[in-house]
Amino acid sequence: MTPNATGVDAVIDVVTAVLLIAGALMSLGAAIGLLRFPDLMSRMHAATKPQVLGLFLVLAAIGLQMREWWVWPILAVAWIFQLLTVPVSAHMVGRAGYRTKHLHPELLSTDELEAVVLRAAGQRAAEKAQEAESAMPHTGKARNGGNARNGGNGGNARNGGPSA
């Protein structure tokens, strides 16, 4: 930031300061959510969303301060990396959390996945285990119980892989 800025510089500095403090507040919001929410799933919301916006605000502040056009594509790449990775890791953590019964049923108003799980546990266990085995040789055997459903890992790994 410019010391004793005047004119345009001063305006840019004020905007930068606002963006930086808002970005830092987003981190604080994530931490408050982590502390106050009762279960893993709601904490996941708190951990992912403010993170994305916070990085966006702070990167925008960097772009304003550098004042060179070639900075923007770099910052965009950094942000897009996060846009691609954050939902995937949130989904993986959430899926593991649901499968290991980290959910508090008393906090849910409806759970439409549970019925599907119970139905699937009996009739589809065998074929899914086979599918899982052919897709992932060393994890298929470990998960041939009721929770070895055809997850989204196939689609995510394939589509997220090349770009992330």
Partner: peptide
């Protein structure tokens, strides 16, 4: 999850240093 947030906070600190 919490260590992920901690990493994000570190990243924010690095970015703020770059901006300032």
């Amino acid at each position: 999850l919490a260590s992920d947030v901690l990493l994000a906070i570190l990243g924010a600190a690095l970015a703020i240093d770059m901006a300032v």
